[in-house]
Nucleic acid binder design. Structure first.
Length: 283
DNA sequence: ATGTAGGCCTGGAAGC
DNA sequence: TGCTTCCAGGCCTACA
């Protein structure tokens, strides 16, 4: 579900509630999400101060003063609900427990963070902070798309010789970490690249053009998340999704937004996932 | 090694 | 209205 910009928005929304605060109670309502929770998770969280809240790809990491870090993945349908805290100018009372509330953290401030995930594709784990990068879910990840290690020469080298469609290559978290179906569709549209073209067959110039475009697409979405964060806080304290205007994603049958382009946005299926594209603009 | 389908779960929307 | 089918923004595993 949430891709990098949404996860970053959730991280920013949780930061004032979690960072520097102590978890006074951890309620764990089931033994697992996608995978089993770590042994004694509730005990290992209770009493811990959260020193920092970080993001790697689509994962959130909460560093605890025990020397462990809590890894949080929202999967496709994971949401965080903040209650009992002043959010902007509004105070949110604690809601009644809801279906799919799997983990509830109560903080020393009285604030509460509830992890709700209907589809249970999300996950949580605990590991030593100084070995977090070696966690199986993080070890194979490629560079952060907004970081310095993601640059033109890197992407050109990484896609060289790859026979897979560029759409699939950009969804490969080992190539670049944090892109999902939406932002890959949007980036390929802005770059004017046909999503079915083989990654290795693209010119170096074309591949290079993707780097600033990917940065731009994600950056704009994070900005939009920032403004919707205020709205969400004012509305209901829920963090997870935000409204954003897409140029091709989920616009099947609608006209291409490129001025003067007669194209109609199409939907094709690539490795089981929907790809939205303009058959005229994207070559 | 590389590329692609299948499966995990539930809920909402669309179709009949 | 109610039942059925399809679809979903992720990611791992198994297989060609």
């Amino acid at each position: 579900m949430p891709e990098l910009p949404e996860v970053e928005t959730v991280r920013r929304g949780l930061e004032p509630v979690l960072t520097g605060h102590v978890i006074t109670e951890a309620l764990v309502n089931r033994p697992n999400l996608r995978w089993p929770f770590p042994e004694r998770m509730a005990e290992r969280l209770t009493g811990q101060r959260i020193l920092a809240l970080r993001r790697r790809s689509k994962y959130i990491l909460a560093d605890l003063d025990s020397g462990e870090s809590l890894l949080i993945h929202l999967g496709m349908s994971g949401r965080m609900l903040v209650s009992g805290a002043m959010l902007g100018e509004f105070h949110h009372d604690h809601p009644a427990p809801a279906k799919h509330d799997h983990v509830v953290l109560t903080m020393d401030s009285g604030a509460r963070v509830t992890f709700n995930d209907a589809r249970r594709f999300g996950s949580m784990d605990l590991m030593p902070t100084d070995h977090a990068a070696e966690h199986p879910l993080l070890a194979g990840l490629g560079p952060e798309p907004l970081g310095n290690a993601f640059h033109e020469a890197y992407l050109i080298g990484r896609l060289k010789g790859r026979n897979t469609p560029i759409k699939a290559a950009l969804l490969d978290q080992r190539v670049v970490a944090g892109l999902g179906n939406i932002y890959v569709c949007e980036a390929l549209f802005r770059a004017g690249i046909d999503p079915t073209r083989k990654a290795g067959a693209l010119s170096a110039e074309t591949v290079a053009s993707l780097v600033p475009i990917i940065r731009q697409v994600l950056g704009e979405a994070i900005e939009a998340g920032g403004s919707s964060l205020r709205d969400y806080r004012q509305a209901d304290g829920e963090l997870g999704y935000f409204q954003h205007t897409f140029r091709v994603y989920d616009r099947e049958g609608q006209p291409c937004v490129t001025p003067g382009c007669p194209g109609i946005v199409g939907r094709i299926v690539q490795s089981g996932r929907s790809t939205f594209h303009c058959p005229i603009c994207q070559r």
